[in-house]
Amino acid sequence: MSTFTPVSVPLPGGFANNTVLVGGDGTPVVFLHGLFGQSWEGFLEDLAAGHKVYAPASPGSAEPEDLVHLDHLWDLLLYYHDLFEQLGLEKFDIVGHSFGGMVAAEFAAVYPDRVRKLVLIDALGLWRDDAPVRDHVIVPGHELPGLLYHDLEHPAVAAIVAGMQDPTADIDATIAVFSTIASTSHFIWPIAERGLAKRLRRIKAETLVLWGAEDKLVPPVYAQDLAAGIAGAEVELVERAGHVPQLERREEVAARIAKFLA
């Protein structure tokens, strides 16, 4: 089993350092996290079994002032462009989950020659009026778990939900969660769609679209839409999983991705 090390990566442009989790050996894979920040090192360990994995933090969660210099999604893509340069990454695979999936798809569309293989897990980025993506911010705390997860009894899910609803959580912890949600909302409020549909055609990377079959936040119909827009993309639904299949069906998802990236 590999171990992840947080690496503080300096960036040009007056940004705070990005704490990138780095682990494993092999060809490079970038993992871009979802709406609620860096987490699920377990799944990262799986990815790192055959690759060198880089998992940056979406900017602004640790240092809200970073967002002042990131006006929109295009600034965010340039931010990642700079970050990957700092990491010495030229051509690499990207696995993006949820918000990170949206960023991954946008990056692959804007820089089609930089991305070798692309995995989109329950990705944001598209919109359809007949199956609206649900709101993850303006939602009562007690409803959020049901929106994100399929099986609330699953031990990994239960542990996270217990943490979310911990009434003894101190103010600093609450503020940290707020900052993280704010940092991703900054780019997608109030609807996570910025024209990706018309740019999907530019993606050259071989693409796997993986989706929790029971995702209530971003219904699986979006898996089909993403795949339909990306030449040659494969779709795979993960049964008995919600918005975070790599948590609820970790082994299966990890194995499928390992096979795809091999």
Binding site: P64, V137, I138, V139, P140, G141, I171, T174, I175, V177, F178, S179, T180, I181, A182, S183, S185, H186
Partner: peptide, 22 residues
């Protein structure tokens, strides 16, 4: 007023949040 309406992440700066939550 629902608390998840009144405290939208990102709306308040850290200092204001500390003052409200505290």
């Amino acid at each position: 007023v629902a608390p998840h309406h009144a405290f939208v992440p990102g709306y308040f700066k850290k200092a204001a949040l500390q003052s409200f939550l505290g």
